[in-house]
Amino acid sequence: MAQFDLPLDALRDFRPEPDEPEDFDLFWEKTLAETRSRAPAVRFESVRTPLTTVEVHDVTFAGFGGHPVKGWFLHPAGARRPLPLVVEFVSYGGGRGLPHTHLLWPSAGFAHFVMDTRGQGSGWSPGDTPDPVGGGPAFPGFLTRGVGDPHDYYYRRVFTDAVRAVEAARTHPLADAARTAVRGSSQGGAITLAVGGLVPDLAAIAPDVPFLCHVERAVTLTDSFPYKEIAGYLKTHRGRVADVFRTLAYFDGVHFAARSRAPALFSTGLEDQTCPPSTVFAAFNHYAGEDKHIEVYPFNEHEGGGPHHEELQLRWLAQRLTER
């Protein structure tokens, strides 16, 4: 796929006027206050694995609605002092998977927490967290579940789980709360941006090819999934366009970016039809933090920088998390 979006020079200046709900902040304040009224119920259980250089803990914590959410907590074997912490969120359709698939960050000396995504985990990696909340009619997938009302929307639960995941991970004695970063790709990048806007004391965030940014443009620009789920829903539910995009505005990464101030490393691929580059630049250009950078991969699609970007991210996060 050749480049199809705006030219790079135009992307760097692309800063659409945000169309955020007037009660955006109040919506999220109430959501988090309601969740925090319940005990976090964090449990770390040591897991025996064939790994010799990394220790693994099976984690359970109370997310949205007090629902149990799973995760993995990994750290270098033999660690005795608090380590910089990287909290990771998973891409669309996947779950936390198996511990040995998460060796990069603990091998580099970090404590690493991987949050399972409720209701997902049967697309490409297994998950262990159900979503006990029902919803109205939806297009197959997750993107339109509860989309008729922001209070019922699926990603209200997921983003709230993610905030609680950071809080849960920070309670482990080997996690240095003051040196906490969040990262993720695609859906994980969307969750990263949301957490960046909702947790004010993060040391760094690293959203790769993030999803759910400038959503209305994305839906009209690409016919790739998962955004096509929204188009498919509106193709059937005629006349609900305004209501659907009003709900999605509470979850748009552009609006979270405008509230984030931690150092940030973004990435985008200029041939990415899944998360078009203009939607990523919309979030990046609205990002409120002064220490921000976007790495552009001109001939890559949704894989972005792949292992090359992982190496860059390792160096960048090591610098940001050791400076504090």
Rank of each mutant, 00 (worst) to 15 (best):
R157T: 14
A175N: 02
T274V: 15
H75W: 01
Q319V: 03
T129C: 05
T180D: 06
G304V: 06
D291K: 12
A138G: 07
F266D: 07
P277Q: 13
L11Y: 07
L26Y: 09
D291R: 15
L234D: 11
Q120F: 00
V219L: 01
K228P: 03
K235M: 10
S122K: 13
F61Y: 15
G97L: 10
V147N: 13
R320C: 04
I191N: 01
N285W: 14
A262L: 08
F299S: 11
V244E: 02
S107F: 04
K228E: 12
S186H: 03
P207Y: 00
A62I: 11
K70F: 00
D25Y: 04
D272Q: 12
H151K: 12
R315L: 11
G197P: 02
F73K: 08
H308C: 06
G196M: 01
L248S: 05
F266Q: 06
G123T: 12
Y287M: 09
E323P: 00
E290Y: 08
V182H: 04
F245I: 07
D201H: 14
R156E: 05
A194W: 02
H255D: 02
P263S: 12
V147L: 08
M115Y: 00
D128I: 03
E216S: 07
P276D: 09
R320V: 04
L234V: 08
Q273F: 15
G269M: 14
T247H: 01
V56Y: 03
D223P: 03
D161T: 00
G121H: 07
D252A: 04
V209Q: 06
T117I: 14
F27Y: 09
S122D: 10
R36K: 10
P276N: 07
E311I: 14
P99F: 00
L312Y: 10
L174T: 00
C213V: 02
E311P: 02
T129H: 01
F110K: 07
R217I: 03
G65Y: 08
G239S: 06
A206L: 11
G269N: 15
R157D: 07
